[in-house]
Simulated scan of single mutants.
Amino acid sequence: MAPSKLEQGHGRVVLHNDGNANVFSEMSATYPLKLLSPQLPSPDVSVVYMLSYGGGLVGGDRVQLNVEVYDGARLALLSQGSTKVFKARPGQRLSTRSKLHSVTTQRLTVRVAPESALFLLPDPVTCFRAAKYEQVQTLHLCKDSSAVLLDWITSGRKSLGEEWAFSQYFSLNEVWIEGKRVARDAMLLEERDVLSGPLTPRTLAESLAPYSCYATLIMYGPLLEDTMRHLTAAYGAITVFKQHAPPPLLWSLSPICEGRGCVVRLAAKETEHVKNWIGSALKQLESILGVDVYRRAFS
């Protein structure tokens, strides 16, 4: 049966393991979404790069990707560089009607079968000045599925003086186990007239200072047990003392599903601090995905 025709901006990935190696029964996408999968030596690990034409998404772009993983296969979803969100294409004049639809949206829905695994490890989202971006990522897992979901955002193009200069950023992550929602994490960042004093409006940049990168890391399943055990022990050993200045990086850990999963939140002054921390925290993925895939995600 031939796959149905995809709407603009839609994509679909279906991965099986036939007992010898992983096989994509479907991998298709339409503009502005692009999907690439390199050949790997591992028979049960595959990589799909989620890309966009022109190096980023512009106001009004709508992307929807559906992913299914079966038969014990392991799939890593990566990106090449940060997901850049523009207000509009250079030289493009928005009509009155298109301005109403200038919000850039991404939807990702993933279903992972028993003993299969999904590792969503993209580079961070970087919103340019005045951009509006919304994303919803939903994972449907089985009791013995495994998954890692990384969602992070930078303050923008600091070298050009753009720190938290976008208009709106909204991200919603949900994890369902056997039809029951076990995690729902939402973040909304937007410029509002919030008062820090009697007459002093506080900008978004002032509210989020001194940190320029925020991240959420959700983990679940048997393949992540050792990693979560290590992080839980490290978090329990943290001792908080009064500090004269904010530390370069802060993190917290919240268990879910009676310890079978967890939600980690991070904030750091530099994006590289977050990347290095996550790369160290997930070091055991080298034995699960292989050194090559691990380096692709954290190099």
Rank of each mutant, 00 (worst) to 15 (best):
R74S: 12
L75W: 09
L77Y: 08
S79E: 01
S79H: 04
Q80N: 05
Q80D: 12
T83Y: 01
T83V: 14
K84L: 13
V85R: 01
F86T: 03
F86M: 13
K87T: 09
R89V: 09
G91H: 01
G91S: 04
R93E: 15
T96S: 13
K99V: 03
L100W: 05
H101V: 06
Q106A: 14
R107E: 11
T109Y: 03
T109L: 06
R111I: 07
A113T: 04
S116Q: 09
A117L: 05
L118S: 10
L121Q: 02
P122A: 05
D123H: 06
P124F: 02
C127Y: 02
R129T: 12
R129I: 13
A130Y: 06
E134V: 03
V136F: 06
V136L: 06
Q137P: 00
Q137C: 11
H140L: 13
H140N: 11
H140I: 01
L141G: 03
L141A: 09
L141P: 06
C142V: 04
K143C: 08
D144E: 15
S145A: 14
S146Y: 00
V148D: 06
V148G: 01
V148I: 11
L149V: 13
L149K: 00
L150M: 09
D151P: 03
D151T: 01
W152C: 08
I153L: 15
I153M: 14
G156D: 11
G156N: 10
R157K: 09
R157G: 11
K158V: 15
K158M: 14
L160F: 06
L160H: 11
E162P: 05
E163A: 11
Y169L: 14
F170D: 07
S171T: 15
N173Y: 02
N173F: 00
E174K: 11
E174I: 03
V175S: 04
W176R: 02
I177Y: 06
I177V: 15
K180Q: 15
K180N: 14
